[in-house]
Write a protein that binds this DNA or RNA. Structure first.
Lengths: 141, 141
DNA sequence: TATTGTTATACTCTATAACTATA
DNA sequence: TATAGTTATAGAGTATAACAATA
C-alpha cells in the first residue's frame, strides 16, 4: 500500500515525470523522439527484432510500435526485411545511418543529460547507476 | 559529451521511458493522469499556486497547465479563487476531495509501484531514495 | 483458431499563435 | 509595454477495434 512506503519514495513518480518533460524539452529539431530513440537503442544493442518483439519489450501495443517503426523507416534509420521462415513477421534492423545517429553527440537530449550528470560527484553518479539498474529491473518485469 | 559518460548511464533515459510507460499502463479507469497527479501532489505539498507558477514548476507551458487544471477542476479536485491583489491571476487550490484522492491507496499506479518497491531490499530502497533526490535536483534546475 | 501486422479512429499531453484583461 | 490567462489549432504518442495474411 502506498501509505506503508517511505513518504519520500512516493515522490518517485512525480520526479520521473518532471525529468521526462525536462529531457524532452532539451531536444532540438533534429532529435529523435524518446520512443524512437528507445527503439533504436534496443535494435543497436540486441540486433534485429519483429514489431511484436519490440512492442512487448518497450511496453506498448503492436499498433503503436508499428507507427514508431514507420517513422524510423521514413527517416532511413531502420529497414524491414521478411522473416526467413514465417511469412507474417517482419524483421526490423538498424541501418548504418541509425547507428551513426545513435552515437552522434549532437543529440541534444543526451548531451543535456550528460552535462547534468557530469556535474555530480562520483558517489552521486554511482548511486544513479545503481538506481538505473533497479528501475530497469522493475520496468522490465 | 555523451561518449565520455559511463556507457551504463546512457541507459537512464531509456529506463525512464520504459518505467513511465509501465506506470501509465498500471492505471485503472478511475486514476488521474500522470500530469494531473503531479499537479495535485504539488498543490497538496506547497499550498495554492497560480497557473503560471504551476507551469514553471512542472516544466510545461501555461496553456498546457491551463488544460490540466481545467480537467482537475471539472473533477472537483481543485478550485479557483481570485488573487487578492492582482486581478489577472487566479489561485488554484486543492479541495478536500483532491486531498482524499491523493491519499487513496486504490490509485492503481501508485499501488503498483509501491508493491514493486516493497519487493526490494532495504539497501535498494535506500538507493532509490537517494537517486530520487538527485534526479529531482537535476529536473528542477 | 491463433498470431503478425496494418488501417482507421480517438484520446491525452504538449506545443505555438493569437487574443483579452489587467498591471 | 509586460504579464496572466484563455481559446484555437496542431503534432506526437498512445490506445482500441476491425481487418487481412499467414501459421
Amino acid at each position: 500500500m502506498a501509505r506503508s512506503l517511505n513518504p519520500e519514495l512516493t515522490d518517485l513518480v512525480h520526479t520521473l515525470g518532471l525529468l521526462i518533460r525536462r529531457i524532452r524539452a532539451a531536444a532540438d529539431s533534429h532529435d529523435l523522439s524518446l520512443s524512437e530513440s528507445s527503439v533504436l537503442r534496443r535494435l543497436e544493442a540486441n540486433g534485429p527484432a519483429t514489431i511484436a518483439d519490440l512492442a512487448r519489450a518497450e511496453r506498448v501495443k503492436p499498433q503503436s510500435m508499428g507507427a514508431t517503426v514507420a517513422a524510423l523507416e521514413a527517416a532511413s534509420l531502420v529497414t524491414r526485411r521478411p522473416h526467413p521462415t514465417d511469412g507474417r513477421q517482419v524483421l526490423i534492423e538498424i541501418t548504418t545511418a541509425g547507428e551513426t545517429l545513435r552515437r552522434d553527440t549532437r543529440d541534444a537530449k543526451r548531451a543535456w543529460l550528460a552535462r547534468e550528470i557530469a556535474t555530480l560527484t562520483p558517489d552521486e553518479q554511482a548511486t544513479l547507476f545503481q538506481a538505473t539498474r533497479i528501475l530497469r529491473r522493475i520496468a522490465e518485469q
